[in-house]
């Protein structure tokens, strides 16, 4: 029984790692920039599908990963520049337009890629199984996924706290006009941020399609996961996204083992609890 518990714990952490990668992009664009992009799940799916096509053609998983991130980043940039920046500060319009776009994107993707479930084939060395002694083996790719999410987390945190771009983002969130008055073009800055955030969604699409799979409907699943993680963890906080992702991932996977009927409910109960007791989220503040 212990073995099963340990494996489901690892499953929980690796799902949490995936949620963290998706939600870290979301928490920066939604939590920090206060841009409401409910088409964020579509960017995940676009990254996954395009990455799959590229991987299928070139037989190269790395290229698939790059292509998936790039196309999602590009789509996110166009969305920010063409739509969201023009609706700045109009939450309801941003929400409605991006919901509309996500419905269109879901149908277009269904028409192009069909209703099949795709799974990526990673390079051979990632398909190995790592031995965990008495607990048996565990797929190397999932352990890599956990490592990658840690790397991304540290990278974003350091970027926001130490670099001038990070300072400009935080300043722009505080007071866009004054940021502009000291010579930074806020629209351009926010397009750059949206590009990076969306590229993370695309990256997660490819990685999620490798660790699990991608199929129609995954867009809303990951959008919801990102929303829950961001709200539970605290808007705009990378540490909060990590805490939120761990909570959601573990509840989901460990819950599947011990209370399978209620594991999905548990996640939302946590969100309701956090909203009721600590509406600003578990971790406060930027970065």
């Amino acid at each position: 029984m212990l073995k099963l518990a340990v494996l489901s714990l690892l499953n929980g952490i690796s799902v949490a790692a995936l949620y963290f990668i998706v939600a870290s992009g979301f928490t920066v664009t939604f939590g920090l920039m206060r841009t409401i992009n409910l088409a964020y799940g579509s960017l995940f799916l676009i990254g996954g599908y395009v990455g799959y096509q590229v991987g299928d053609l070139t037989r190269n998983w790395y290229l698939a990963m790059i292509a998936g991130s790039a196309i999602a980043g590009l789509s996110g940039a166009v969305l920010q520049w063409g739509v969201l920046d023009r609706l700045r500060g109009q939450d309801m319009r941003q929400a409605l337009v991006t919901i509309g776009l996500s419905i269109v994107a879901a149908d277009v993707l269904l028409a192009v890629f069909g209703g099949l479930t795709y799974q990526f084939t990673p390079p051979d060395w990632m398909q190995a199984t790592v031995s965990l002694g008495v607990f048996g083996g565990y797929p190397a790719f999932r352990l890599l996924l956990i490592a990658l999410s840690l790397f991304i987390g540290v990278f974003i945190w350091a970027g926001l706290t130490c670099t001038r771009v990070g300072l400009a983002i935080r300043a722009g969130v505080d007071d866009r006009e004054m940021l502009s008055a000291i010579g930074v073009n806020p629209s351009r800055l926010f397009v750059i941020v949206a590009t990076c955030g969306s590229a993370l969604a695309g990256l997660a699409g490819v990685i999620g399609g490798t660790a699990l799979s991608i199929s129609p409907g995954e867009d809303s699943r990951y959008l919801l996961a990102s929303l829950v993680v961001t709200i539970v963890g605290g808007m705009g906080s990378i540490a909060g996204a990590a805490v939120g992702a761990l909570l959601v991932g573990l509840l989901e996977q460990v819950g599947l083992l011990y209370f399978p009927n209620y594991s999905i409910v548990a996640v939302y109960l946590v969100m309701v609890g956090v909203l009721a007791l600590r509406p600003q989220g578990l971790v406060r503040g930027t970065a």
Binding site: A171, D174, D175, E177, M178, G183
Partner: peptide, 20 residues
Amino acid sequence: HEMEGQGVAIVPQGRRTFPS
């Protein structure tokens, strides 16, 4: 930001420093 590029800077009323 273009005016700034031309060499204009402002100390605004109410200071408007960045809280974060």
